[in-house]
């Protein structure tokens, strides 16, 4: 039976050290007998370091990251989401959503033009209307789109 990867416990260890280091810079509390603002982060940092050592020696097998096309899909989706959240204000919600949906479906591997282009535009419009007029939530719309909607 193979053991699990060492990467997760090492990451936990590094994170724990990072938390402990960052909590050194926290101002002490100013009330008498208050354990202070750094109290909780220090417990967390120390706890993570101790647990990482335990987990380093007690490694159970685990699934691990996918390979090939599946990994590309996951990374591609994360990158698209990052682009989407940065474009939502400059481009407005309807346009950025249509773009996101189109590219996302493309990454998944669909090449049918109706699914790639028409459906995203319709869906993003429908969601915009649902929020704006159905639920009273204002989403960003640029002037260009504001005229249309």
């Amino acid at each position: 039976m193979s053991k699990g990867s060492v990467i997760p416990p090492v990451l936990v260890l590094l994170f724990g050290i990072g938390v402990l280091a960052a909590s050194a810079g926290i101002r002490p509390g100013m009330l008498d007998q208050d354990p202070g603002p750094a109290f909780m982060p220090r417990i967390c940092g120390a706890g993570l370091i101790l647990l990482s050592l335990y987990l380093f020696f007690d490694r159970e097998p685990h699934e691990g990251l996918p390979r090939g096309g599946s990994l590309v899909k996951v990374i591609g989706t994360a990158v698209l989401l990052l682009a989407y959240l940065n474009l939502i204000e400059p481009l407005g919600f309807p346009l950025s959503t249509a773009l996101f949906l189109g590219f996302e479906v493309f990454i998944i591997g669909i090449r049918n033009p109706v699914v790639l282009v028409a459906a995203p535009i319709m869906l993003s419009g429908a969601i915009y209307y649902l929020f704006r007029y159905g639920l009273d939530v204002a989403l960003p719309a640029t002037r260009l789109f504001g005229v249309l909607i």
């Binding site: 919600f93 996302e104 479906v105 669909i110 869906l123 969601i127 929020f131 939530v137 989403l139």
Partner: peptide, 14 residues
């Protein structure tokens, strides 16, 4: 599923 999960992502963002 090809629409469902991208739509879940859009709703999560919104």
């Amino acid at each position: 599923a090809v629409y469902l999960w991208p739509l879940v992502l859009v709703f999560s963002v919104v």
